[in-house]
Simulated scan of single mutants.
Amino acid sequence: MKSLPITIDSVRKAYGSYVALDDVSLDVRPGEFLTLLGPSGSGKTTLLMALAGFVRPDSGKFLLGDRDITRLAPNRRDIGIVFQNYALFPHMNVLANVEYPLALRKTPKAEARRRALEALARVKLEGLSERNIAALSGGQRQRVALARAIVFEPRVMLMDEPLSALDRNLRETMQYEIRRLHDDLGITTIYVTHDQREALTMSDRVAVMNSGRIQQIDTPQQIYDRPSTRFVAEFMGEANILAPGSVRTIDGGGASRETLMIRAESFHLDAKFVGQDGVALDGTLRAKAFRGENWLLTLAPDGGQEVLVCIPSAFAGDCAELAAGQRLTVYASAAKVHAIPGATA
C-alpha cells in the first residue's frame, strides 16, 4: 500500500490559559519515520492525539495526502495507533485482540483470521495466538499492540512512547524491531518519545518540541551536532554553552567572538587529536567520575562557568591520576565547535 504524506497546518490547542500547541506546522514525508521529541509538557503527545482524532484542535488542520481529516472520527482516519499502555483487551486472547480492528470494519471472519495471523508473524509472535494477554511479557504485549495497529493496513502509524514501560535491553531490541517493521511496510510513522537516544537511533528526522512549539526539525545528526537553539543543544545531551572569549584557537588566531556549543565528548586531553584549526580551553579540575565506558571531568575555566568533559576510557590515559585543583587544558576540533546564533551563555 502506498504511503501518504501528512500535513499539520497551524494547529493550536489551549486548555484555559495553558497553550498546549502554539501554531504548530509540520510536513511529514511519505514513508518517513519522524519522531516528536521533547520533555513532559512540551506538546508532543497532545499533537499526536490531535492527529489521531482524540483531541479536537482549536484551530488549524490535518491533511492525510490531500484529504482533510481534521473533523473525522478516529476510526475513519486510516491511522494505526500504538498507545503507551498498549490498550489491549484483557478478556480477549492474542488473536482476538489483533482481529478486533478488522471486526470493526466488518471484515469476513476467515479473512480477518488470516490477516491477524500474518500480522502476528510479522511481529514474531507465531504460536502465541491463543495465549491470554495476562500471560504475556511486556515485550510480547508490545508486539501484540503493534500487530493490532498494522493488521488493517493503515496509511499512517502513530506511536505514543510505546517502549517506556520496558527495561533497557528489551527497549533497545524493540527499537530495532519497530524500525524494521516500518521499513518493511513503508508506513508513514510519527513516533513520540522523551528519550533522546531513542529518537536519534530510530528516526529519519526528529522534531524537537518545547512549550507547544517545534524548536527544530532535522536529521538526527544535524539535531545533535548543529542545534539551532540553546534549548535543543542542552536537551539533546551533555552540551557546554560557552560565552564569547571562553576558548582560544590553537593556531593563535585569538579567542572566539560567538556563543559556542561544544559537546562533552568532543573534548580531548591531547591536542594531536584535533588539528591546527582546533580550539583549547584552560581551567581547573573540580571533579572527576569513572562511568565505565568513559571518564566525566568537571572543569572550571578561568572566569567562566563549569564545563563537562567526557573522555572515552580507551583514550583516558592518566585520568585516574588526575586530582581536583589540578590545572588542565582540553582541546576540540573546529568541526565539533558550533556557534548558536542569538544564544547567551
Results as ranks from 00 to 15, higher is better:
L4Y: 09
D9L: 05
S10F: 04
R12F: 07
R12C: 15
Y15I: 13
G16M: 08
G16C: 10
V19D: 10
L21S: 05
D23C: 03
S25A: 06
L26R: 06
V28F: 01
V28I: 10
G31I: 00
F33R: 07
T35A: 03
L36I: 02
L37K: 00
G38S: 07
G41I: 00
G43E: 08
L48K: 04
G53P: 07
R56P: 05
K61P: 07
L63Q: 05
L63T: 04
R67I: 06
D68T: 02
L72W: 06
A73S: 14
P74M: 10
I81Y: 13
V82S: 11
Y86E: 06
A87G: 12
L88C: 09
P90K: 14
N93H: 06
A96E: 15
A96W: 11
A103V: 15
R105Y: 13
K109G: 13
A110C: 10
E111H: 07
A112N: 04
R115T: 07
E118Y: 03
A119H: 02
A119V: 03
L120R: 09
R122P: 01
L125H: 06
E126N: 10
A134T: 05
L136C: 01
Q142K: 07
R143H: 08
A147S: 04
A149R: 12
I150T: 10
V151W: 14
V156Q: 14
P162M: 15
L163I: 06
S164P: 14
S164M: 12
A165D: 13
L170Q: 02
E177I: 06
I178V: 14
I178K: 12
I178T: 06
R179V: 04
L181W: 11
D183A: 15
D184M: 13
L185A: 11
I187C: 10
T189M: 03
Y191K: 07
V192T: 02
R197D: 01
R197V: 03
S203A: 05
V208I: 11
N210R: 13
Q215Y: 13
P220W: 11
Q221D: 15
D225I: 09
P227C: 05
S228V: 05
S228Q: 13
T229Y: 12
R230A: 07
F231S: 10
A233P: 12
E234D: 14
G237F: 09
E238V: 14
I241G: 13
G245R: 02
T249M: 15
T249L: 14
G254F: 00
R257T: 15
L260F: 02
E265W: 09
S266M: 04
S266C: 05
H268R: 15
L269G: 00
D270Y: 03
D270P: 01
G275C: 02
G275Y: 02
D277H: 08
V279D: 02
L281A: 06
D282Y: 06
L285W: 05
A289Y: 02
F290S: 12
L297W: 07
L299N: 03
P301I: 04
G304M: 10
L308C: 05
V309Y: 09
I311M: 00
F315D: 11
G317I: 00
G317A: 06
D318G: 12
C319D: 01
E321M: 10
A323I: 11
G325W: 06
G325D: 01
T329I: 11
V330T: 10
Y331E: 01
A334C: 03
K336Q: 14
A343D: 08
